[in-house]
């Protein structure tokens, strides 16, 4: 409660104390604009991190539980091979469910490459069997050996080859997003520090007069800290709102679009960007306070 009360006093401020430092219109506008731009970028960095995280989770969790068996055989052998594979799978520990994909499902898979009117019956297309593992999974090497014996035309693809690099890539993309947010935070701190330094230098005479009449360093620092914190909060709030609007206008999630169309926020993730203006204000508060107190100490 004490902290909340201090925050309230800080935000509501003291009108007569605020007037002591003259308004610096140009610096104020630049600070707000810089904070807004940084917040706008932060929204996208956050969206990228969260979307990459979702992708990495999906690829590492959901896809890790499924495998495919591809059966290449002549037309008269195909049904027998499918039956043999299903029998092998039925007695394989760790297999939760196995089913051959229907013609329609295979058509859907091939449609992006061959178009909608694919004459599946006239083409020597392999049959696909989807295998769902239980939590413990199955022994892939053992299953391959058994398939080689029972159904020579069957090849097990447990997705490991392409899944692992994709999970790693998504994980790196997520880290890159977080790194981008760190860089944005540091840049915000640097911009606010430079702006506060400039304001303190421009107000050297004001500081001198305030000291002359008995102002403490904390009082002088507070006048600058409050101003820059509120400017940053306002600018960052505007930048975040614009960023959220821009993200909302991105195309919605579409399986055909893959990762790029899922680059937004989902569900409760829409609440995370609301922390950006608060974080920016916190950074501005710390940066301006440190700068002001250091400058005042230097000039004493």
């Amino acid at each position: 409660m004490a902290v909340l009360s201090k925050v309230l006093v800080f935000v509501t401020g003291d009108a007569q104390a605020d007037r002591v430092v003259p308004p610096t219109g140009f610096t104020a506008r630049l600070t707000g604009l810089a904070a807004g731009s940084m917040a706008f970028l932060a929204v996208f960095a956050l969206a990228l991190s969260l979307a990459s995280g979702r992708l990495a989770d999906r690829w590492s969790d959901a896809l890790a539980q499924s495998s495919t068996i591809r059966i290449s055989a002549t037309e008269d052998q195909m049904d027998a091979q499918v039956l043999a594979v299903l029998e092998v799978l039925a007695t394989t520990p760790g297999v939760l469910e196995a089913r051959p994909l229907s013609d329609d499902e295979q058509n859907t898979l091939l449609e992006p490459w061959f178009g909608p009117d694919l004459p599946l019956d006239d083409l020597p297309i392999p049959r696909l069997i989807e295998v769902i593992e239980d939590a413990g999974g199955f022994d892939a090497t053992g299953l391959r050996n058994r398939l080689a014996g029972e159904a020579p035309g069957a090849v097990l693809d447990d997705h490991t080859k392409w899944r692992e690099p994709l999970v790693a890539a998504a994980g790196r993309l997520r880290s890159l997003g977080y790194l981008a947010m760190l860089v944005i935070t540091a840049t915000t701190a640097i911009i606010i520090t430079l702006a506060a330094n400039a304001a303190l230098a421009a107000n050297a005479q004001v500081i001198r007069v305030l000291r002359l009449v008995g102002a403490r360093d904390a009082y002088i620092a507070r006048a600058f800290v409050r101003r820059y914190t509120l400017r940053t909060l306002t600018g960052a709030a505007a930048g975040t709102a614009l960023g959220l609007g821009a993200v909302a206008l991105l195309p919605g999630g579409d399986p055909a679009g893959g990762f790029l169309t899922g680059l937004g926020f989902q569900g409760a993730h829409w609440l995370w960007p609301l922390l950006i203006p608060l974080l920016a204000a916190l950074v501005a508060f710390a940066a301006t306070r440190m700068t002001a107190l250091a400058t005042l100490k230097e000039r004493s």
């Binding site: 007037r19 002591v20 003259p22 308004p23 005479q205 004001v206 001198r208 007069v209 000291r211 002359l212 009449v213 008995g214 102002a215 403490r216 360093d217 904390a218 005042l296 100490k297 004493s300």
Partner: peptide, 24 residues
């Protein structure tokens, strides 16, 4: 510096150049 600031509240200083804040 805080002690000095408090002591200055007990000392009124008039400068030759007055030292005002011109925007007030």
């Amino acid at each position: 510096r805080d002690d000095v600031a408090l002591a200055r509240r007990r000392v009124g200083v008039v400068h030759q150049d007055c030292q005002f804040l011109d925007h007030l």
